[in-house]
Write a protein that binds this DNA or RNA. Sequence first.
DNA 1: TGTACATCAGTGAACGCGCGTTCACTGATGTAC
DNA 2: TGTACATCAGTGAACGCGCGTTCACTGATGTAC
Lengths: 215, 215
Amino acid sequence: MGWSKDGGDGRKGYHHGNLREALIRAALHLIGEKGPGGFTFADAARAAGVSSAAPYRHFRDRDALLADVAKRGFELFAAALEKAWNNGQPNPYVAFEAVGRAYLAFARKEPAHYSAMFEAGVAPESDPELQKASDAAFGVVRRASEALTAHLPAAGRPPALMMSLHMWALAHGIASLFARADAGRRKLPMSPEDLLEAALLVYLRGLGITDRPGV
Amino acid sequence: MGWSKDGGDGRKGYHHGNLREALIRAALHLIGEKGPGGFTFADAARAAGVSSAAPYRHFRDRDALLADVAKRGFELFAAALEKAWNNGQPNPYVAFEAVGRAYLAFARKEPAHYSAMFEAGVAPESDPELQKASDAAFGVVRRASEALTAHLPAAGRPPALMMSLHMWALAHGIASLFARADAGRRKLPMSPEDLLEAALLVYLRGLGITDRPGV
DNA sequence: TGTACATCAGTGAACGCGCGTTCACTGATGTAC
DNA sequence: TGTACATCAGTGAACGCGCGTTCACTGATGTAC
């Protein structure tokens, strides 16, 4: 709807004006509706109000468009996590919880980005920019883990890398099983956010982080 | 290969003999190669050495076949977890770890089943048998969690349902991110099994389960 | 300021292809008597 | 034991459809002078 010929996208007659952006938005819409598999180049062109040959001016093929969607997704994701982390304010414990909630919120609010990022089979190594964006997102979790474990006695301190992988996997598992938008979602007798927060609480207690440190 | 006309499947001339099974095996092979999206009814028929109209004698459509694959996947999955749990022997702690390893092993050894179960958008509620098989698999984790928490003082004892959801999400997250077979797999500086075992260790310590109980 | 020209970003027609699905059909199998 | 018949599980030809991709083309835009 929004992106056809007469939409507010700056389409000016023969030239679209911003077809690249319009195609990406169309892709997001289609992926959101039918999953990463049920999105075609031709469909995206149609949604953008343009001939089926036009997308080739902007993307090598369908996979190139998908990779671009994944890349942008990781950039948005990294920004959302970074914002939630908020430099560890007011304290690392509270900020870490906020990161977890931001993770789930992203999966729920941006299902198309999320599935392009994690379920479309796009290899992060396939594109340096994609890799970079993906690393940036994980980097937030990693730094947050480092901040949280920094005050523990060095002797039994867990590796921050390991902790961040645990948290990433946990959040991803909860998002994939219980917070996804499509029919595959499992029923849950509580909110995904509560489930994640409870797990975080137990996990941190297991690490010896028993209450809000610092301030 | 194995399932064409002259394979060892009991094909006897005009009648295939066991086309239903052959189609399911073909589907598993194709999903394993190209993902749940990249599998077609026509392809499955071809792989089974049969005309493209033949599958309609056994499955209403493509989705019905996919649902069947998911159902069988859950049945195998439940059996594998059950076997690993081994009635909590030699003790619940060791047995629980074995369940976690079995979870990852299944995702790795049966990628086609796994993605049909969790990533193909098949709704567990769509078929009572599918739902039952799915519940059975989760039931193993749930019972294992109950056995592990049984010895804790009733006062601060965590709900076994919550614990089992945490473990399920954790194992699923690790499997999805790091143990999948396709291009989407993330690199990991350790084995998925080690990562899961370490997380389990921390989590159980957080619950107050500090060492192997019982015996 | 106007004009000529290069470049860009679209068109639209065409192609081959494989998929899903239907249809009347027919070979093989099982069973009643 | 043999035969007639019903049923089952396939065939193969046909259809409409949408996709991906290529092609020569052309309208719009920007710029040198």
